[in-house]
Design a protein around this nucleic acid. Sequence first.
DNA 1: CCGCTTAGGTTTTACGTATAACGTCTGCCT
DNA 2: AGGCAGACGTTATACGTAAAACCTAAGCGG
Lengths: 338, 338
Amino acid sequence: MARGSTRPTSRDVAQAAGVSQAAVSLVLGDKWHGRVSEATAQRVREAARDLGYRPNLAARNLRLGRTRTVLLVVPALTTEFFAGVYTGATRVAAEHGFGVVLYPSPEGIGPARDPFASAQAALDGVIASSMAADALSAIRGEALPLVMLDSDPAGSLGAATVNLDIADGVRQIADHLLSLGHRRFLHLAADVPSWTFDVRARELAARLAGVPGTSVRTARSPISSEGAVAAAETALSEPGPRPTAVVCDDDLLAAGTYKAARRLGLRVPDDLSVTGLDDLALATAIDPELTTVRLDAELFGERGMAALLAVLEGREPKGGDIPVRLVVRGSTAPPGAA
Amino acid sequence: MARGSTRPTSRDVAQAAGVSQAAVSLVLGDKWHGRVSEATAQRVREAARDLGYRPNLAARNLRLGRTRTVLLVVPALTTEFFAGVYTGATRVAAEHGFGVVLYPSPEGIGPARDPFASAQAALDGVIASSMAADALSAIRGEALPLVMLDSDPAGSLGAATVNLDIADGVRQIADHLLSLGHRRFLHLAADVPSWTFDVRARELAARLAGVPGTSVRTARSPISSEGAVAAAETALSEPGPRPTAVVCDDDLLAAGTYKAARRLGLRVPDDLSVTGLDDLALATAIDPELTTVRLDAELFGERGMAALLAVLEGREPKGGDIPVRLVVRGSTAPPGAA
DNA sequence: CCGCTTAGGTTTTACGTATAACGTCTGCCT
DNA sequence: AGGCAGACGTTATACGTAAAACCTAAGCGG
């Protein structure tokens, strides 16, 4: 009191407790055992509480040369999936006394050349979702510890990678549809250059290549429900025998496919089976509920953060892809079930 | 070069350019006009570029006593809506050289008593979405400039508020349904104590109170599609004349209501009109597309950040609620249209 | 009684930056 | 000639913290 406006510093606490600033730092930093008496420590803690003392983080960060803050670079936040990744990453970070700053990469903020200009915070490390090579090298130029999510392990310039086992998810989808009897497929692919989508195309092709009598057409769509409607409607209207199953790169595209099917008078799943990938809330909101692959976004974020913490502590990050699981719902059925 | 691992400081730049550290700070801080010659400034800039100099944010923050970082407290990130708010807030912040740190409030991270422990960054201000009073007072205790989103102006302890004109949105919904001829309503309300939901209930009741022959039942549901299914199914199965229109507190609840209607053999909109609130991507993904009120989440975030910047600069934040707009789609029709 | 250890602190320093305060030199006016 | 005003810098300092280095007195073994 009598101090008024400005926040109390450790020196104020020291004065109030009748000790030196160093003693305050020791006590509050829990490094006082054997260096300060229990009674004095108690006085310091009380003074700190009474004054409402909060350490100045800028000063601490400067002194320590680290910030316990990491940057999470995501393609765009406007998706349930990355919200989950963020939530998971934050949970693990908090357990280790770290904070997470978000940087929505490409569209959000202007040209977005520089994540580090926008993130005012000083950083200890970076977690980046599958991103373009130039943006990646910009980050590497910063010489910060880096973990890549959902990225080509071979193309990550030596950074640690944490991936979902998307390839296995696509295999599960393919096997499910094949076992239902489908042979003519449409692959509704995301029109985004990204390793995570390349994997889908590659694995689907590889799986079907082993089965005689199968065929797969590919249509490309921007990642939005509206874009998918147009792409799917066009692709399903092409001459020749119509595909009986549409494998979509994610749930949003699947929702668009539903709408295209309605416009063409096709019923899901009787005339057309549809699969997604993500298992968003959307998947159970549409009718029929969507057969899709459940990606555990939060676990993904947790594992990513755990890997970064490992790198920061000089440990070896835990390897292995994160398993995914096919969820069969009402949007898939044998062809011509009607 | 020859320096090796550690990042270059302004002193290194100074040495490379043959000037004092102060000169470097002046030039790079763009405060050199009339104090440093153009030629010297050029040398400094080149040296900085060659060394790949980046100012140490922690040191700058300490020196300046501010961080150009603000905290955005949201109820939970796992929603498209708050992702939009964040995007808008970040856009405006970036224009003013500010960064935004996110704090997902209640469930995400343990008990989450203390936003400021988790957000490692030192902060200049806070934007908080409608939140409980105790959490609010914890923030106020921090004595940081504060802007509240979607909160009771009277109960915000004097903090500036920025609100969507939800009341007007509810009026538009009510008028739309009344003009279609509906008289028996079900209000599917979010089971969350929050001013923003109170407004919905109050305004709906007020609107219908003026029209003779109307009745409204209320059912409560957690904010999730699954929870809404159960709540809506129960409410629609109650004895007595069935409501012809369901007014839902948000789009997620509306999606649940669709599903409940299907289970009960009711068709939307022929047997039952349904309205939402938010206009999420979901609204156009479900069939029929949802009549709802479009909330411009990004604009909301922009206005919130603009208000906080105003407070930080000692200006008066711009007042006035943000207008919302009814979007009529296929989920509403006159009662008994079948 | 000397010297060593230990408890219980204090003094000092460094982190990297921004800026106030202080110099110097040249040119120019009166 | 004296002085004064730029132009062009430099020197010094402070921000608040953590921790290394230092100090002092008491206890104690030999």
